[in-house]
Design a protein around this nucleic acid. Structure first.
Lengths: 142, 142
DNA sequence: AATAAACTTGTAATCATTACAGTTCTATTA
DNA sequence: TAATAGAACTGTAATGATTACAAGTTTATT
């Protein structure tokens, strides 16, 4: 089942989360945008539609989703957390010019890292920063 | 030349940094401790010796060192930056039980990552969290 | 010794995040 | 349907790392 085909209320219930209106709308954000939003991105997008929405609710909900393994936190920013639909471990690239964050297919085999022998691994984060193709040759791209 | 054998004032000068007393002492911290300190770790360690030291100076100095490629920033924490002697790219492991941060030898070849073809890479960060050996079997370790 | 530039310091501001208490919503039961 | 308890939501205040800024100190140059 692909992310876009998932029924959000069902998906929440399956993960032990009561499907409130705010929670549905917040998770739907990730279904509709394949980006890596900050708390504020989500808050500002939903506010016109849900004028009573509190930023605290966005924080609480995202923390809950992370705890229930629906979302991952991305700390590629220096100061602000971003969130991403939880899926097979992958990496993230941030272009330091345009600021966009991309997903990367990275297969980092923990068993290949000498110092980790016997360690219990809970999380794996791979962040790469640089300049994306478009920002290197602004004119060469249509 | 190994980190412990470096002459700090010379090293600073070579990197285009005027070797003030505070800067020498702060960089010396990294020579004497092979850890990954926070701003506060450094501040508290040096304060008894340099009672006039300001936390702002520690911030300014660490930012300068990072800018001059003497140190790297580690953002494995959720809320606080850590710093590390800049050397060949490597990863970091944080034990979620004892909180200690270890260095990892990781060789992540950017050319092996499909989505990065043609991208200019400036930084590479690999963070792994889990439970270290000692915290898994507290009694089995002397 | 004079002077300017660089460095350091302390306080105040910033900003993301969390704490907390009051309000609203939801589901269950009578 | 009404009552009630628990969960979820909201708004404000607090927290805490980091930065801005202006004033004081040190350093280097003349």
């Amino acid at each position: 089942m692909h992310r876009k085909e998932i029924d959000i209320p069902t998906y929440l219930t399956e993960h032990g989360i009561k499907a409130s209106y705010q929670r549905i709308r917040i998770l739907k954000y990730f279904q509709e945008h394949l980006t890596h939003p900050t708390v504020n991105d989500i808050y500002e997008e939903l506010l016109p539609d849900i004028p009573t929405l509190s930023k605290t609710t966005v924080y609480n909900t995202l923390n809950l989703f992370v705890e229930k393994n629906i979302l991952d936190v991305i700390l590629i920013e220096e100061n602000e957390a971003r969130y991403d639909w939880a899926m097979q471990t992958h990496g993230h690239f941030k272009c330091v010019k345009c600021g966009q964050v991309f997903d990367l297919e990275v297969n980092l085999e923990p068993s290949s890292i000498p110092g980790l022998r016997g360690y219990e691994i809970k999380e794996q984060h791979i962040y790469i920063k640089g300049v994306c193709l478009k920002c290197q040759n602004p004119e060469s791209v249509h």
